[in-house]
Amino acid sequence: MVGSKKGLTFRYLIAFALLIVMVFPYLYMVLNSFADWTQVDNKLVPTEFTMRSYEWLFSGGEAGIARPWLKAFFNSVIVSTASTALMMVTGAMVAFALAKMNFKGRDFINNAVLFQMFFPAIILLIPTFLIIQNAGLYDTYTAMILPKAMSLWAVFMYTNFFRAIPDTFIEAAKLDGASNFQILYKIVLPMSKSITTVVFLFLFMERWTELLWDMIVVRSDGLLTLNVLLSQMFGPYGGYPGPMYAASVLLTVPIIILFLFFSKQFKEGMQFTLK
């Protein structure tokens, strides 16, 4: 359905117009983070610029209360990295067992994973909080990491991908005396780079932008993630729109850079997941 040359030009025009509309909120955010404070939210495209919003953010504002923005940024990095790394390791391990090992109870585990994946998770929120509290983990990094150390979606994605890898590769390695961990680490995972990128990006993004869980298990200023700090600082009655946009930029830009950095592998990986 590519159509005529004229039709193609028309489609490119529409596509660019749509793209501008879609990324407009981001542009608005970036421009307003640099906008003169009299123009923030008053103009669609600001004309006068200043660094004041960023200065305010990092100096702690007029009240002089230094808000731990950088600390929050690093908290987010620590929590998201640890959590994502664990989710990927556990995901690949379990998926390897489900896809490439033959053992009693495999079908049961496979069905349990699928069942749990589609189970409404909201029912688990309160008791999971209580488990963390009773384990003495309230208000710690561990509280944010441990309940998110495993992703059933990652298990599901890896299982599907591993199943497509021919058994002969694994049997050959087996004959060479490789252990299961070696097979997973040295043969299966290197063959799964594209899917690993997709899984990593989705998991990291989701962890980076988590609000509800991080909000209820952490109270100390020094432990808040950037997303939670942003939410609390600029809640329903928050003032200072300029710094609000600056903080939003701080939260959004790293994830976009990460995504663009991996965009080529991401495209390849998505081809598989969309089949």
Partner: peptide, 26 residues
Amino acid sequence: IGFFLPYLASGVVSSLIVKGLLSHNS
């Protein structure tokens, strides 16, 4: 890739941007 970028936004950030876009004097 461009159309996918909004998917990366934190719900907090997109809400704050929309709040700004819809504020009284926007």
